[in-house]
């Protein structure tokens, strides 16, 4: 079950403020880093939604993101559609892909589910890697950002785009939190806890799982369109399974099933990667060690562990 506790609200606000301040007062590259964090955080919230609350640990979230980015690029650059319509098509494509994966894998669980999602993700990757019309492995450029000049907003300004992305991150968080608090969210958590019981209660668990994946796909799709607009460039690396693995790492690092943890995880991973790679090319080893440490120290993740201590402390206060 998901609760938007005061601690979570405070952490969320603190994280968003940190990102906003870092982007406002940092150098050019600080803004790049902030957007990288935001995109990863949206993906991680999207994964936490289905993995942390629905038990569906997917390795195809990168593919969901990439599909949205590619359809956005295909419609707007290759077919000359409007940007909003293209973004709609991109999101729809991600939702349909994610929904199909969710529907087909509804009976599969555990490591088999991980492998099945990996298979679907890699199929999508292979298709875009080989699709010459969309640039194949070279990728394609020419993406544009939304034109909001009617509202006096120029997204081509780096700082404004960063705040726009922050807004999307907040939107994704609020949407997920609302959905998880609804009856749908309770059913999803119920399936995670005991699928058999939910079926006995007459709930069509396959439908719930499909819907959860589809919603997750929508959020991953938003990350994809943001990524395409940010770099003006997309390539098949967006879809490859190791990226999905990185997203999973972020969720675990921050705290699975906490929704705000993934944002903390994304901040930590990206900052760690950049600060270590400034000194050595062997940054994988640190990421690996941190991951091992995160799991061995209880598996709650940074935010999860903090929350656990906090709750223990509060209980001690009341007793």
């Amino acid at each position: 079950m998901f609760y938007q506790s005061p601690l979570r609200t405070i952490t969320l606000i603190a994280a968003l403020c940190f990102l906003a301040i870092y982007a406002s007062f940092g150098s050019y590259f600080a803004r790049e880093i902030v957007i990288e964090i935001i995109i990863l955080a949206i993906l991680a919230i999207s994964l936490d939604f289905c993995a942390g609350f629905g038990g569906m640990v997917s390795l195809c979230h990168g593919a969901m993101m990439g599909i949205a980015a590619y359809f956005y690029g295909m419609m707007s650059v290759k077919l000359g559609w409007g940007l909003t319509a293209s973004a709609g098509i991109g999101l729809a494509a991600a939702v349909i892909f994610a929904g199909c994966v969710g529907w087909v894998t509804a009976r599969i669980s555990g490591i088999f589910f991980i492998m099945a999602t990996l298979a679907f993700g890699q199929m999508a990757y292979t298709i875009f890697f080989r699709w010459r019309w969309l640039g194949g492995d070279d990728g394609m450029g020419g993406m544009r950002r939304f034109d909001l000049s009617a509202w006096g907003v120029n997204l081509n300004d780096g700082l404004i785009f960063t705040f726009w992305a922050l807004g999307i991150l907040l939107l994704v968080y609020i949407l997920s939190a609302l959905l998880l608090r609804s009856g749908f969210g309770r059913s999803l958590s119920g399936i995670h806890a005991n699928e058999g019981r939910m079926q006995a209660l007459g709930i069509n668990t396959a439908t719930i799982r499909t819907q959860a994946m589809a919603f997750s796909g929508l959020m991953a799709g938003l990350a994809g369109i943001l990524a395409a607009q940010h770099t003006f460039y997309i390539s098949p690396e967006l879809l490859v399974w190791t990226l999905s693995g990185e997203v999973l790492l972020v969720v675990i690092l921050g705290g699975i099933g906490t929704l705000v943890g993934p944002i903390i995880g994304a901040i930590l991973l990206v900052l760690m990667k950049h600060s270590i790679s400034a000194y050595t090319d062997y940054w994988h080893i640190f990421v690996g060690l941190v991951l091992i440490f995160a799991v061995l120290s209880g598996g709650r993740g940074i935010f999860g562990q903090g929350e656990y201590w906090w709750q223990k402390y509060m209980r001690g206060q009341h007793a």
Partner: peptide, 19 residues
């Protein structure tokens, strides 16, 4: 520790051995 944690720790080991 459950399959999820095992997958993650051994995934971390892959990174360590790689470097």
């Amino acid at each position: 520790a459950g399959p999820m944690n095992q997958v993650l720790v051994t995934f971390g080991l892959i990174f360590v051995f790689l470097d």
